[in-house]
Design a protein around this nucleic acid. Structure first.
Length: 917
RNA sequence: GUCGCUGUGGCGAAAUGGCAGACGCAUUGGACUUAAAAUCCAAGGACCCUUUAACAGGUCGUGUGGGUUCGACUCCCACCAGCGACACCA
């Protein structure tokens, strides 16, 4: 086998690793090694389409990192599995008319085959799928932990529901009242909420899965209907999910996305009485005595604002159409138009509400509230630009200092009163604001605002908040954009909820629920002849056999919960199961969890920036609070690989032309074969219609897995978005061929070394190349800078190709350096160099810093910052010697002649610069 | 609209205050060959000037305009373009 033939050597070494269990990871890190390393890829959905080129990008990066650290003596946990529940798998099953489990298992087998083809060093014995019954047994178990936990806001942590203090008035109402009270406090609770119902998908969706009123998956319209749903109280953890971001080594962009998603704001809640002006003074006096009530009373409109300093400028109120007070306060005259408006709003999807120009609409209720600081009556409007789900569902409108309120006020001719003045602005700008022509939403100085007048906005905020609290009119309040997580789906292909609904004497659920006993887990999916969605909100599991659906327990009759969990459930904790995948007594072995967690490096796409990563952190914190895991955060370091794009071609009208119609000319221009039109080459996402999708399996067949791996790493920085180029693959394949020929005699029958390989010690120059390459490659791998690491190895090969004597030790060093990147070829060459074991655990080459340095260094000489000459000097020459050498240079003397030297800047081993006049 | 990322040869890119363009692709020239492929060696930002056409020299050059600095792809300010995310959260 004289020539490099990946089609032969790659399967050979894959079989070797498989049979020898080369990458099997021990239960606990080896105490004699240099420590543990847990490196995780975001596991894939096993879609029917198989791997695309984006998958091997992140997987190769982690694989290189793992192989490197194994050679550096770390015990490496590097698992792989499948996120196999959920809509994509189910849609695929429906499309191909196969039961979901069957198509899912076929897809998993195909993915496994393709992944093994790429030579990743996973411990395949730890592989799992979220659809494995033994896996989702523990997903259900964790759900029961959520169900069994309430959030103690005082202690700032989740605690067992049995420790929830029961107020005396509840306790006196009996057992049912106590149960209801507990159920309402659980982290997993049921709620009749307005939900995003998607008829086409036959399920409700989380807010995060709805984009512009359409489903993220499939782009179907979504309606808002009220439905009983399971919710997870993620909002209880909002503060910790935000605060703990600080300790994570994540890209700042992702941290910011999460912080914005959580959307913490600090402001004030303020009560506006809806009473006559005569009654106001009495009401206010009562409030001083009673102080701010926990819940607003019937004739009070409670609002949330982040700008309490603008309270004096509140000229009207707005409540959301769904606000409970709407009906109560609307006057007889306005009843018809208010009712019509609210009804229309309820039919509108979010998309309709936000679409287009977003012209604000609303209707006057006929009612008035009293501004508690000015005592003035102001009108109350209903408008759908106020959301029932945020804050109190009602606002005070300050049109002079809020853009939305300003637009609304302009549309309906409402009063605009300026109470904040910009600190620096031109007279013209000030006048425009005064006349109500411009809205000033920034901070400045308070004016015409009673005791606040003259204060900065910040000072005014704290002053008014304190005054409101004193008068019982308001209090400081914190709000989050984050909403509780809508956790149930009306689909077949998901984890069943381990929850039972108690049946009353009439055979119908009586509203009481209980958990399935842990000993009875898992609750497996029933067999259904027809699992397809039917467009009604009733889940398919309701069609299950009675033997599944009805349960008798402790002398009571129950009906199973028929919702299923969303796709995110399984991916919330898979990184824990990888630690002890076979553990039958717990979701993760306690000792092993403590030894391996946290995940040291987590690589995946940025599309999971908020959803998966936030959900997983939330579950992890609950498990942490309940003492089941040892770390408060699961993923210490996170890296997002960039998207791999493809070239696409655009004609003069801007239309995209399929790649098979494009002809490339010698002068780097592109023509449409059919029309002869010249085309512009652009970079775009791969798509079937453009015929520019790259199939990784085809690349492996043509160039080999090592070439694919190497190319994906050589394309550019891991985090960058970059276009695929087949010529680039050819380039790295060429490099691999050069490595092969550097060592193997191409003319021999068997693998024989070229005769230029000697047992001589390297020359000083060769040593410099060897040691500086070890240094650079090691550093680059640790920094995930794989493209430059490969460039350094190319330089090494270019250098030694020209050497007529190639020390065998140098060749061995190269093979070891290359091993993490191109493991199949490296194993083969290692073998040819006379070694009998895998190099996977061979010690990584060590460099000697002294050897990396050249004896003489070329130093640039500058005059006024412009390069004028170069000189050779001994490395490490001191500043005085450098300056003297520069002054002695002929050309420099010419240039400096007759000039006055103002300053000389000398940087050792770097440069000399003369500043002259 | 808001936020984020990116802008460097024909192309992918490197350099995070000190010789811009490492490494690779494509290109060109040479060697080898009857020839081609493969391979090996070499050239290479743009422009200009002088000459003995080899060596050497000069000007400009990292999206645009300004600034800081002896010195800026790199730091600061403003802007433009492309890509991505979010989008009435009071």
């Amino acid at each position: 086998m004289p020539r490099y033939n990946p089609a032969v050597i790659e399967p050979k070494w894959q079989n070797y690793w498989d049979e020898k269990r080369t990458f099997r990871c021990p239960d606990l890190p080896n105490p004699k090694g240099t420590g543990k390393l847990y490196v995780l890829d975001m596991f894939p959905y096993p879609s029917g389409a198989g791997l695309h080129v984006g998958h091997p990008e992140g997987y190769t990066a982690t694989d290189i990192y793992c192989r490197y650290w194994r050679m550096r003596g770390k015990t490496v946990l590097h698992p792989m599995g499948y996120d196999a529940f959920g809509l994509p798998a189910e849609e695929y099953a429906i499309r191909t008319n196969t039961p979901p489990r069957q198509s899912t298992e076929a897809n998993i087998a195909n993915f496994t085959r393709q992944l093994k083809m790429l030579g990743f060093s996973y411990d395949w014995d730890r592989s799992l799928a979220t659809t494995d019954v033994e896996y989702f047994r523990w997903t259900q178990w964790i759900f029961l932990i959520l169900f069994d936990t309430w959030y103690d806001a005082g202690a700032n942590r989740g605690r067992p529901i049995s420790e929830l203090p029961i107020p005396a008035d509840i306790a006196s109402q009996g057992e049912h009242a106590v149960d209801a009270y507990r159920d309402a406090q659980r982290l997993a609770y049921q709620d009749d909420a307005l939900v995003n119902w998607c008829p086409a998908l036959g399920t409700v969706l989380a807010n995060e899965e709805v984009i512009d009123g359409r489903s993220e998956r499939g782009d179907h319209p979504v309606q808002r209907i009220p439905l009983r749903q399971w919710m997870l109280r993620i909002t209880a953890y909002a503060d910790r999910l935000l605060g703990d971001l600080d300790q994570l080594d994540w890209p700042v962009g992702i941290k910011k996305l999460q912080a914005d998603w959580i959307g913490r704001s600090v402001g004030a809640e303020v009560d506006f009485p809806v009473i006559t002006q005569d009654a106001f003074e009495t009401w206010k006096r009562n409030r001083v005595r009673s102080s701010f009530p926990r819940e607003p009373d019937a004739h009070v409109l409670r609002i949330y604002t982040t700008r309490p300093d603008t309270l004096y400028g509140a000229t009207y109120m707005v409540v959301a159409p769904e606000h409970p007070l709407v009906q109560k306060i609307t006057t007889h005259d306005q009843a018809n138009s208010v009712e019509a408006y609210c009804k229309a709003a309820s039919f509108k999807s979010d998309r309709d509400r936000t679409e287009g120009e977003k012209k604000k609409t609303g209707v006057f209720t006929g009612a008035y509230a009293i501004n508690p600081v000015t005592g003035r009556q102001i009108p109350i409007w209903v408008a759908d630009y106020v959301l029932i789900s945020y804050g109190t569902g009602a606002i005070m409108a300050v049109p002079a200092h809020d853009i939305r309120d300003y637009e609304f006020a302009k549309t309906y001719g409402l009063e605009i009163i300026q109470v904040v003045k910009p600190e620096s602005a031109t007279d013209e700008e000030l006048q425009a604001i005064e006349r109500g022509e411009v809205c000033f939403a920034g901070y400045g100085l308070s004016i015409d605002s009673g005791s606040l007048t003259g204060l900065s906005s910040q000072d005014a905020k704290s002053r008014i908040t304190a005054e409101l609290a004193q008068g019982g009119l308001g209090r400081e309040a914190v709000n989050y954009k984050l909403r509780d997580w809508l956790f149930s789906r009306q689909r077949f292909w998901g984890e069943p909820f381990p929850i039972l609904h108690e049946l009353g004497a009439d055979g119908k659920p009586n509203g009481r629920i209980r958990a399935v006993p842990v000993a009875d887990l898992p609750v497996d999916l029933p067999h259904l002849e027809d699992y397809k969605p039917h467009g009604r909100p009733e889940p398919p599991l309701a069609k299950a056999d009675e033997s599944w659906l009805y349960v008798s327990l402790d002398g009571k009759q129950y009906r199973r919960e028929t919702n299923t969990m969303p796709q995110w459930a399984g991916s919330c904790w898979y990184y824990l199961r990888f630690i002890s995948p076979g553990c039958g007594t717990a979701f993760v072995d306690r000792e092993q969890e403590a030894a391996w967690m946290p995940v040291d490096l987590y690589i995946g796409g940025a599309e999971h920036a908020v959803l998966h990563l936030l959900y997983a952190r939330f579950w992890h914190k609950v498990l942490y609070d309940r003492g089941y895991v040892s770390q408060p955060e699961p993923f210490q370091k996170l890296v997002n690989q960039g998207m791999i794009l493809s070239y696409a071609y655009r004609d003069q009208r801007g239309a995209l032309v399929a790649t098979d119609r494009v002809e490339e000319k010698d002068d780097n221009t592109y023509l449409d074969r059919e029309t002869g039109e010249s085309l512009e080459r652009i970079v775009a996402k791969m798509s079937k219609s453009l015929k520019n999708v790259i199939d990784p399996e085809g690349v492996v067949r043509e160039y080999g897995a090592d070439a694919l791996r190497l190319y994906e790493m050589f394309m550019g920085p891991l985090e960058a978005t970059k276009p695929w180029s087949m010529q680039g693959v050819n380039g790295v394949r060429n490099f691999l061929d050069r490595v092969w020929r550097l060592i193997i005699d191409a003319r021999a029958e068997e693998n024989a070394l070229v005769d230029t390989i000697t047992s001589d010690a390297p020359t000083p120059e060769q040593n410099r190349v060897i040691h500086s390459t070890i240094q650079a490659v090691s550093r680059d791998v640790e920094n995930l800078s794989f493209n430059t690491a490969i460039a350094r190895m190319m330089e090494f090969v270019n250098f030694f190709t020209k050497e007529s004597k190639r020390p065998k030790s140098a060749m061995e060093t190269l093979v070891l350096l290359l091993a993490p990147f191109a493991p199949h070829m490296s194993e083969e060459l290692w073998h040819a160099l006379g070694h009998h074991d895998s190099l996977a655990y061979h010690q990584w080459p060590v460099f000697d810093e002294a050897m990396t340095k050249a004896a003489e260094i070329e130093v640039p000489l500058q005059v006024n910052g412009k390069l004028r000459a170069k000189i050779m000097v001994p490395a490490g020459s001191d500043e005085a010697a450098l300056e003297q050498a520069a002054r002695n240079h002929d050309r420099l003397q010419e240039l400096l002649d007759g000039k006055r030297i103002v300053k000389v800047i000398v940087v050792r081993d770097r440069m000399v610069n003369f500043v002259v006049k």
